[in-house]
């Protein structure tokens, strides 16, 4: 057995084998007295007192990391924010704070990943809109599903990383930043046709590499 690795951050003094039991009303099991309170627990408690306040806290805690995570899949700032927003809206409309058994964090990250997956599938395979389905199923927390999702964003990153430098630059300015072809052409000193060419090349590389999924 390897010794406990030294952690640099204060909130990692928790016993790694402590099971996390976030159901409302159940006290955290075996939390050492000197551990920082788990944010999740606090959010849940706030939901219990005032749902709107709980929701805002939930949003402010998770919006940014979720957007960042979504961007690894879709490589588009605006779409990433849209997808995450959709998940949050759904959360409120379905009053999920009353019926999620896992941590909100686990739910939100999983829901966002699934949404990104269906978005990419739609974008590159032209799946009809009716097939987009973001219901949260219980086997979404199975290890192989989790790692499959991880593999997806890692694949996207690898594909983009492998693009030739100019192509990569153009692609990121267009897709991630949302800049117009004109702006990109001006910024990089190329023609608009050149920009178009780079982007279609990048998209076909991405499409090919995702087809394997």
């Amino acid at each position: 057995m390897t010794p406990e690795p030294s952690e640099h951050l204060p909130d990692e003094e928790k016993n790694p084998e402590r099971p996390i039991d976030p159901r409302p009303g159940t006290p955290e099991a075996t939390v050492p007295d000197n551990a920082l309170p788990d944010r999740e627990f606090f959010i849940r408690k706030t939901f219990g007192q005032d749902a709107a306040k709980g929701y805002e806290l939930l949003f402010r805690t998770y919006y940014q990391p979720l957007c960042s995570h979504a961007a690894r899949f879709v490589y588009n700032k605006e779409i990433a924010e849209d997808l995450v927003t959709e998940i949050f809206l759904n959360f409120w409309k379905k009053e999920l704070h009353t019926c999620i058994a896992t941590t909100f964090r686990a739910y939100l990250f999983t829901a966002v990943r699934n949404r990104c997956f269906t978005y990419l599938r739609w974008e590159f395979n032209k799946i009809r809109q009716e097939e987009l389905d973001d219901d949260f199923l219980s086997d979404m927390l199975a290890p192989d599903h989790i790692m499959e999702m991880d593999e997806l964003y890692m694949q996207v990153e690898r594909a983009i990383h492998a693009l030739p430098p100019q192509c990569q630059k153009v692609f990121i300015l267009s897709r991630f930043e949302g800049k117009s072809y004109q702006e990109i052409a001006g910024k990089l000193g190329v023609t608009v046709k050149g920009v178009e060419w780079h982007i279609s090349k990048a998209l076909s590389v991405l499409r090919r590499s995702l087809k394997q999924n």
Binding site: Y63, P65, C67, S68, R72, F176
Partner: peptide, 12 residues
């Protein structure tokens, strides 16, 4: 979450 917070792709 911790990793995303310390290595963000962007900051909305």
């Amino acid at each position: 979450q911790e990793w995303e917070n310390s290595h963000p792709q962007f900051l909305p």
